[in-house]
Design a protein around this nucleic acid. Structure first.
Lengths: 357, 357
DNA sequence: CTGTTAGCGCCTTCAG
DNA sequence: CTGAAGGCGCTAACAG
């Protein structure tokens, strides 16, 4: 019998002629199949697989052989049902095509995979309502933990969703410490705008515009607070010089173009993030404005493109990949049962480049 | 009893003071709990949830009430175990930070989510060995289907992996029709290089370099075939003028710099993709070469950045987002049981811009 | 229209 | 060191 196996083996572990039959019945090889074939109990097989309990190396080896021969693979689902661990984590982000988020996601994915976790990606497309739908869809029974990036949802909606999960980490957001650990930049978008305005004011600009990220719950301050704060410092940011934009290049371009045409008196513009700022940069040049001579621009994430356009974009840098890695690490800690609140803050540092030297 | 519920309700569906207790016992509310509370059988509750079978609107309503009151959510895991459907699909891609792939991924995610599927993201970091590990990790029991993008694996390794899955779609790859539907560009990387070379030759270039994507199984032709093909057309591409690079900006930059220094006689360079080409562009400018006067450059994906650098990059355009959408649609068809082979081919069209006018 | 019976594939007791 | 029973939470297939 042993000697006849090789043939079967090949067609099972390789793409063979009996593929069609398999597709019909989907005859999964189970623990019991292995047990029967090996002449042991299911429990023994289970122990071999999980490397748990004491087993004679003899049976262990024999069972391993049978497992390999049959091409047995334990059902993650069945295991999840009984252990209550799925080895998956959810990652909720606004837009995977935004380099800022794809870098964070990469950091997360690469980190959790080391511990055999998989990432369930949920893209909210920068929409609060979609974010809610998506969060609602991710049941606690399908993930061991959740990382929520730059949530656009108000607390009343976000917090109950987080509460459903065993382990949560939020990025760019503050929530009650019992609910989640947190990784974020120290300034937040509001402070970043203030930093930018100060920088521009110091450079002599008096008419500064601000194209901010539309109704984002990640904003630690709202526009009026920012204006107020700056006014206190003698920097004058008119309310009408502040408009919102969705955080994509195209929206930055469209918004920026209309904005610059409406307020030609502006000598500087702050973008809510790099994509917006880069859109504005293109709009400015299409309008015949010289950057930075006629118009200075400051962005906000230091994505690759920021350094490669002409003139290169002055922006704020933060370790995106590392933020993803750390968020993942904090989540793994929580999943492992260590529920102590942890918080990682990163400074955003201003990178002075051509658009606002 | 009914009148006392509201209090409990709030602390269950909202973040309440008994969070701590819940975290301990993780006392999931089950179907039976609902059934008991509603005074019906579990089956009835199941029917209400799945909207299946005939149920008096009276009991339906009552059960729905209890479900809402208890904040019951069905266990995806348990359901998956019995239905053999997880409502998840796997997406294997080389690098999520490459805009080319993040756009495809976005298309996939957004499409499958309409049908309540979630995406498991597996990033291989452009490494064949990691891709193998990752594919091995994605068990057929955890996904209903799989989309593999630009696999770097040879057939001997890739095909058996695909065979394990019920439904597969490959992007930028050809596999036996029984195994998977396919979405890809009509040219493939090899043909794209040939198109580029022809274009450059026509523009008068005689010394053309080629920085290609390292040992990628997505190449329909290898370098020697390309050289041969071009030679037949009277276009001379020396073997030593062809070097490989990993498909990232930084590698493109480093490789490009060394390459240009070693072969200053080149008047044009073809990049394996946009990131590589953009890296070369920067390297060329850092070396004091004027583009396109001293050196023409052609890229290959038409990512956003390509159009925004100076001079803008001549490249090939293909509908990345749509490719993701279609791949997802083909996969959903297969998951639904329609296993007919389908193939979508997209033309890559040359976008003539500043780096190679 | 509703309930009963049997598992899905695995692991956690508890006995040998 | 190994096995037998029971159940995780849900639904399919039958009853009624």
């Amino acid at each position: 019998m042993e000697s006849k196996r090789p043939t079967t083996l090949k067609s099972v572990s390789f793409f063979g002629e009996n593929v069609k039959q398999m597709t019909n019945k989907r005859q999964r090889i189970t623990l019991d199949d292995v047990a029967r074939e090996a002449g042991v109990s299911a429990m023994t097989v289970s122990r071999v697989i999980n490397n748990t309990g004491r087993i004679s190396s003899e049976t262990r080896e024999h069972v391993s052989d049978v497992i390999a021969r049959l091409g047995y693979r334990p059902s993650r689902t069945a295991r999840a049902l009984v252990t209550n661990r799925t080895y998956m984590i959810g990652v909720v982000i606004p837009d995977i095509t935004n380099p800022y988020f794809s870098e964070i996601t990469q950091g997360v994915e690469e980190t959790v995979r080391e511990d055999d976790y998989s990432v369930i990606l949920a893209n909210t497309n920068e929409s609060a309502s979609r974010e809610e739908v998506v969060l609602n869809h991710i049941d606690a029974s399908m993930v061991d933990g959740l990382i929520v990036c730059s949530s656009r949802l108000p607390d009343e909606i976000l917090l109950p969703q987080l509460e459903r999960h065993q382990a949560v980490v939020v990025v760019n957001r503050k929530v009650p410490e019992e609910l989640a650990s947190s990784v974020r930049t120290s300034y937040g978008l509001g402070f970043r705008a203030i930093q930018s305005a100060r920088y521009l004011a110091k450079a002599g600009h008096e008419r500064i515009g601000y194209v901010y990220l539309g109704r984002s719950a990640a904003m630690t301050m709202d526009i009026d607070q920012i204006i107020e704060q700056l006014a206190a410092e003698g920097i004058f940011l008119k309310r009408e010089w502040c408009v919102s934009s969705r955080p994509t290049w195209q929206h930055g371009y469209d918004t920026g173009k209309a904005f610059l045409e409406k307020f030609p008196e502006l000598t500087a513009v702050i973008g809510g993030n790099d994509l917006i700022a880069l859109g504005i940069l293109r709009a400015a040049r299409d309008l015949g404005r010289k950057v930075p001579e006629d118009l200075a621009i400051i962005g906000g994430d230091d994505i690759l493109m920021a350094s490669q356009v002409t003139p290169p974009l002055t922006t704020f840098r933060m370790p995106k990949h590392e933020i993803g890695v750390v968020a993942a690490q904090l989540l793994l800690k929580r999943i492992a049962g260590d529920m102590t609140y942890r918080e990682h803050l990163y400074d955003e540092i201003l990178i002075e480049r051509g658009t606002a030297p």
